[in-house]
Structure formats: C-alpha cells, structure tokens
Design a binder for these strands. Structure first.
Length: 308
DNA sequence: ATGGTGGCACCGCCA
C-alpha cells in the first residue's frame, strides 16, 4: 500500500500536475491540502476519468483538503470533516483588525483543514484469495474501536502567522484539539496514518537555518511540545524512521529567491503512522520531481509504502 | 538591490 501527501497550493492551478502525478505513481491514497476550491467548483470530472475516487471539503480561496483513492483499492468509508469538539474561541481566518471576533462552532475553516476516512485496500483481494467459501472469511489484522481498515487522517494545520499573534494561539490550540480528536475517536493500537501539511519542522535537521529560524511559527518550542504530545499518544514519523539525513525538505518558500535551487527549505509535510502500521512501512521518500515541471507547488509530495 | 513569488479574489489576504 502506497500513501502520499501533497500540499498542492490550489488544486485547480495544479490540476494537470496532480493528474499526471497520480498516473505515474498510482498511490492507494493521496491526501491533498490547500485545494483552495469551494465544494461546488471541485474539479470532479477530471478525476472521474482517472478511476480515482475522492472525498473533499473546501472553501473559497483558502485551505481545503481531499483524499483520493483508486476504485481497485476498495471503498473510501467513514468520511468525516473537521473536529467534533466544542465551539472555537478564536476566529482564525479573520483579518488582523477583526481576528478576535468569535468564530461560529464548527466553522467552515475548521472543516476544510481536517478530513478523515477509512480505507481497506486488501479486503477485496483477500476475499478473492479465500475462494468463495465464505463471504465473511476476511479477518482484519487490526480491529479496535471500530477501525477495521486503515484510518487516514489528513490535516492542513494552521500556519500561525507570527508567534505573538492570535493566529499562533489558534495553531497551538488546534494541535491540542487534534490530540483530543485522536483520543476520542481512536486507540493507539488502531492502524492510523496521519498525514498532511503540519506547518511544523520537528527538528533542527528539518529546517535550513535552525539557529536563526528558532522561534518562527513553524519551528517553535511551543509547537514542538504539542506535536510531541500527539506523537507520544502513538505515532511514528515514518520518514525519519527510514531517512536520517539532514536537508530533506518538502517546502521551499516562493518568496526566498532560488530557495529550491539552494535547498533553503523546511520539512513541513509528514506521514505519521501508529506503531503497528509503522512496523510495516518499507519505504518513505520525498518526491521532488514535480518541482522541475511547469507551475510547481511550493510543497512537494511525500510518499510512504507499507507491506499491507 | 528599500525589491523579490504565487494563488485567489477583489482592489488585499494568505503562505
């Protein structure tokens, strides 16, 4: 099973690139962030031609997440958008002048940053191999708390603007809500893949200038604390499990001249798996290929392969 | 070098 995550920075602007990437890489799951498209304008027809199924939630201009999975890999089920917690305190996407205005409960902005689904890529195959002896001969390897396939949690974590801003507090709070979300809906023994743009470089080797960038909203001790707590709940960074090299980035700021060429980047996009699943991870790599094509995203895909 | 990129929407916001 191949799982990928890609912040596309507008799905419509990146449509040809995403379509060719799917065709060339054939992942069982592609989690996409920053689709920047309202649900009514989602380019469904283009993906219908590919055989990939999809679930998505977006809004105008900002945020937006989607999960793609091919028909042959089984159904996408148990789809849920956003958190299921109490009302949020801060209006995240509001302008600077109005950012302290109360946000409505389960706002569109929250919903378009988290999408959860369950997939079972081998269910059909196992049934076929079992012969037609019994329709119920398939026994899932992991069965806990109602998860009998693999749960995919795709997040686009708030960037945080500046450390002294309300938006940064919103980001810290967002990670805390995410931990509660995992705790409420799953067990650490479930097979969960948590992927997406986390807007955090976990360690010094994940950012091009750790000394000077320490304190940046994407490389900040307070954010690190929140991430660590979620990791301690039961996740393994499968990229770092396979690759210890510094300078392995998934994002290069467009505003920094020749950032990609000079490899002045950040590792902000991640694939985390619960321990039982991480043990089955056979490879994890960053695919910089799309950066050499026309109109690339500022992020680049990260891919993990599992013996599943 | 007092600017420089990119996307979307609208005349600015966000990354």
């Amino acid at each position: 099973m191949k799982v990928a995550s890609f912040n596309v920075n507008s799905l419509r602007a990146r449509l040809p690139l995403v379509l060719s990437w799917l065709d060339e890489n054939q992942p069982d799951v592609l989690a996409v962030q920053e689709t920047k498209v309202q649900d009514v304008d989602f380019p469904a027809e283009a993906f219908d031609k590919t055989g990939y199924k999809y679930v998505f939630k977006g809004q105008k201009s900002y945020n937006g997440v989607a999960i793609f999975s091919p028909l042959s890999a089984g159904q996408i089920s148990k789809v849920k958008f956003g958190f299921d917690d109490e009302p949020t305190r801060l209006g995240e996407g509001a302008s600077l002048a109005t950012e302290t205005i109360e946000a409505p409960s389960r706002s569109r902005k929250d919903e378009s940053r988290l999408i959860k689904a369950e997939i079972n890529p081998v269910r059909k195959l196992r049934r076929r191999l079992a012969g037609q002896t019994s329709a119920n001969s398939f026994e899932p390897t992991f069965l806990s708390n109602g998860v009998n396939g693999i749960a995919i949690v795709n997040t686009y974590v708030p960037q945080g603007y500046l450390p002294e801003s309300e938006k940064f507090q919103y980001k810290l709070n967002w990670f805390e809500r995410l931990l509660r979300y995992f705790d409420k809906n799953f067990k650490p023994t479930d097979a969960i893949v948590w992927v997406g743009d986390f807007n955090i470089a976990p360690e010094a080797i994940d950012v091009y200038d750790p000394e000077n960038l320490l304190g940046h909203v994407c490389y900040h001790p307070e954010v690190h604390k929140r991430l660590q707590k979620i990791m301690q709940w039961g996740f393994v960074d499968v990229f770092r499990m396979h690759c210890k090299e510094p300078g392995q980035y998934t994002f290069w700021d467009f505003r920094l001249p020749n950032a990609f060429k000079r490899n002045l980047g950040w590792r902000l996009d991640h694939i985390m798996a619960t321990k039982s699943l991480a043990e089955k991870c056979t490879a994890c790599y960053i695919d910089k290929g799309q950066r050499t094509k026309e109109r690339p995203s500022d992020h680049t895909p990260i891919v993990a392969e599992f013996a599943w």
